[in-house]
């Protein structure tokens, strides 16, 4: 595992605080312009340790004990990279009933890289992740405002087909959640449900049985998830009999079998032991060659090890800072982010 991000060439600048506002304004979007204005009024010089901004109409944000009351600046979240954004989020607000879980979050996620979302518990990083494939739709009283775009197509637009969206944006959960079925059926579940594979009695009767294709697919997905060697001789066994780490890799394999563009991972290693965690981390780095991976983690070392860029969320659902992982961990612009990264709270 290296600390060197793989997407080095994509970053355009090694920015200083003052450059940010102009860079953001140059981006041209209205919110970026607003960000430029607010960062000017709030004091452009926002080096670590600087006093908080004094925006009068800024609501008081709940803070974790130990956090300084520094005012966040929108400029700190403007991260520039080459190429198009795979996922582009602007002004995202999320509410659970009356409670606001995310507050005007804007960030662009580059393709084929690992983006880590870190922050203290309750900061909304998982909520943010679940906004990307609309899993929050399932939560009673959850409400999402703002725009999330996948390849410039609005995820929350009218007539969006959730099935199609989730085919393209896969997800791996915190707790391994294999289906109580055989290992093989776990892998082929998605393609079958999407009609890419036909198995079963009818298909067999009609001579359309895709069992060979299924076998290939299962092997490919399991190899890709580095699980093949461990389970190739017992594909028919119930997946719940696997160890936790194997189950989680099975869930990743299951996700890969659908061939998504983006893979969301919600603390994928938090329920696992160190050995299994290391395997998952290696896997994530490999996956970034083909897929856009977004990982929520509470483990800062893990974020530093595996990610190309890191977004730091702070209590109250605000995105505090978003930058190349090196920059976040070595030279954060926000005092609160520095404190968080240094372990002073969280």
């Amino acid at each position: 595992m290296s600390d060197t991000p793989q997407s080095e060439p994509r970053r355009s600048d090694d920015r200083s605080g003052a450059d940010d506002a102009t860079a953001a304004a140059a981006a041209g979007s209205t919110d970026a312009a607003a960000a430029a204005v607010s960062s000017k009024t709030g004091g452009i010089a926002g080096p670590p340790g600087g006093p908080g901004g004094v925006d009068g109409d800024e609501p008081a944000v709940a803070r974790t004990v130990g956090e300084s009351d520094e005012q966040l600046q929108d400029a700190w979240t403007d991260y520039e990279f080459d190429g198009d954004a795979k996922v582009s989020v602007s002004d995202l607000d999320t509410y659970y009933g009356e409670e606001r879980a995310l507050e005007s979050v804007s960030l662009d996620i580059p393709a084929e890289s690992v983006t880590a979302l870190i922050g203290p518990s309750g900061c909304g990083k998982s909520t943010f992740l679940r906004c990307l494939n609309r899993m929050n739709d399932r939560i009673r009283g959850a409400r999402v405002e703002g725009r999330v775009a996948l390849d410039d197509r609005d995820v929350y637009g009218d007539g969006v087909n959730l099935v199609e969206l989730r085919r393209q944006v896969g997800m791996v959960f915190q707790e391994p959640n294999p289906f109580p079925k055989s290992i093989r059926d776990n892998i082929s579940y998605g393609p079958r449900k999407h009609g890419d594979l036909e198995t079963g009695l009818l298909a067999r009767l009609l001579g359309r049985d895709d069992r060979d294709a299924e076998r290939d697919l299962v092997e490919r997905a399991l190899r890709r998830a580095a699980l093949w060697d461990e389970v190739s001789d017992r594909l028919g066994d119930n997946a719940l009999g696997l160890s936790g780490g194997q189950q989680q890799r099975l869930c990743i394999a299951r996700c890969l079998a659908v061939d998504p563009d983006v893979i969301l991972m919600d603390e994928p290693a938090s329920a696992l032991d160190p050995v299994a965690t290391a395997k998952i981390e290696d896997l994530i780095e490999e996956l970034a060659e083909e897929y856009t991976v977004v990982v929520v983690t509470h483990n800062m070392q893990q974020a530093a090890r595996i990610s190309d860029q890191t977004a730091v969320f702070l209590t109250g659902g605000r995105l505090a800072e978003y930058d190349a992982t090196d920059a976040i961990f070595q030279n954060p612009q926000s005092q609160r982010v520095e404190d968080y990264v240094a372990g002073k709270f969280g």
Binding site: D154, G159, E164, R167, Q168
Partner: peptide, 14 residues
């Protein structure tokens, strides 16, 4: 695996 369908998120309605 179904790359052709990836061009659109929304389904049209006649």
């Amino acid at each position: 695996m179904g790359t052709a369908t990836k061009t659109t998120l929304a389904t049209g309605e006649s």
